[in-house]
Write a protein that binds this DNA or RNA. Structure first.
Lengths: 237, 237
DNA sequence: CGTTTTAATATGTATATACATGAAAAGCGG
DNA sequence: CCGCTTTTCATGTATATACATATTAAAACG
């Protein structure tokens, strides 16, 4: 464990402020020269730190204008599934969305297992079930839980008009996500919703999102195995 | 399209040499000071370029020893499936491997479709079928094609003793890969090999690897859906 | 001759300085 | 008040310099 270097400590410090929300997205942070003075380092060192945070995507820098905190963006191929609408439209197909059910309840054992809260405190969840359609055909079934302690405004949002995934992207910044990808047989309910025969192999992507260490939402996306595939490419550079 | 900066052009130049094999893995490249002189830049600038290539994983630098070209490493969560042995051992289970079949042939239509060669020239392939075992139980079925034009030494390698994935990792440097993840029903053959009932959902990961734009190998890994899952986490930083 | 100490050396980090670049703001003629 | 030029200013890049650090090779020593 080598001693962290000077600009590394600055990077960590500033990143903390952004992740903890002290510097919200869009906030204009002090000038490079002022920050250098505040930290007691040269401008070159501060420039290196700010440059790294820019490469990491946390900051957006422009000459004369200054440095602002960047708005969070999704990164990986798996993450991009967050926005199913864009995915379908990217394939040149027509996107449709239907809310199947909505219910409000105190989190039960299954809900807690999915969201994995840090403590034992009770909390309420909003449970949604929805269908994403491509060219009118069922494309993906979504089962979602939203932690109402983390996102209270979800209780009054209209999820019949807007998919929860897209709505949450605008509400919760810099979330960390965890994915589990499996192959599962279609249950009776799922088969009915997706127009499949029960037992048909489906690709299931379960995503648990947290913000500042606290669970925000859990989404289980199920795709008919013969109609969907996940593509990811990797190249050096 | 901003003008590339000085050290950016150096980074691109040196990375090219590594990717094209002019500087093979393990090669000790000239000292920072000498390279700086050769490129006509200051040591600081060359240091920045070499530092970036190090962060990208192309170089390995150590004080006094000098700078050497790094041996390629797999990166992403999906890529890590390359080495199934390590994956199983990482789970604390016993790893076993069995070669089921081996055949040599001129690439047919199916082989060409999987490998997608750049031109129409005929070539030979080595086709392998193998089983990976965890604690003695079937864990994953592997169907693999190796382009013998790209890796001629594969013809004489003993794939009964060593899995092709691990062997190839040592032979082919800096490959780019493409993955397709699907859910498929187990075919009769597959079901027999994996001890499943035909039709059972399986997670299929197809990986096509290329080096310098030419296909090297194609691997189709099939996992029983109820025994395996792919986990990927994403966090800011 | 083996062990310890010392010097040499390549990379790692931080600083001061200089100039380039791009965009906003100020100035200015009409 | 409009449209143009000039200035100003924050960031972007490159350099010389200095010292730190890790590791090897040589030197000193018992």
């Amino acid at each position: 464990m080598a001693e962290p270097t000077l600009h590394d400590r600055i990077v960590t410090d500033l990143r903390e402020r952004i992740l903890r929300g002290a510097w919200p997205a869009g906030h204009r942070i002090p000038f490079e020269t002022d920050l250098a003075e505040a930290f007691g380092v040269s401008r070159m060192t501060m420039n290196k730190a700010l440059g790294q945070l820019t490469r990491e995507g946390f900051l957006d820098r422009r000459r004369k204008l200054g440095t602002v905190v960047a708005t969070p963006r999704m990164q990986s191929a798996v993450m991009e599934i967050a926005n199913i609408g864009e995915e379908i439209r990217g394939l040149g197909q027509d996107y449709g969305y239907r809310l199947l059910s909505r219910s409000l309840r105190v989190a039960g054992p299954d809900d807690r297992k999915a969201l994995r809260p840090a403590d034992e405190a009770p909390f309420r969840v909003l449970a949604l079930e929805a269908l994403h359609l491509a060219d009118g055909l069922p494309f993906c079934h979504e089962a979602r839980l939203i932690h109402l302690g983390a996102v209270p405004q979800a209780e009054t949002a209209d999820f019949a008009a807007q998919p929860a995934g897209a709505w949450l992207l605008q509400q919760v910044p810099w979330s960390a996500a965890e994915h589990v990808i499996r192959a599962v047989p279609a249950s009776a309910d799922l088969a009915a919703a997706l127009h499949l025969r029960p037992g048909t192999p489906c690709l299931e992507i379960a995503r648990r999102t947290e913000f500042e260490g606290r669970p925000v939402t859990f989404a289980r996306l199920t795709y008919p195995g013969d109609r969907h595939q996940l593509v990811a490419g990797f190249s050096p550079s």
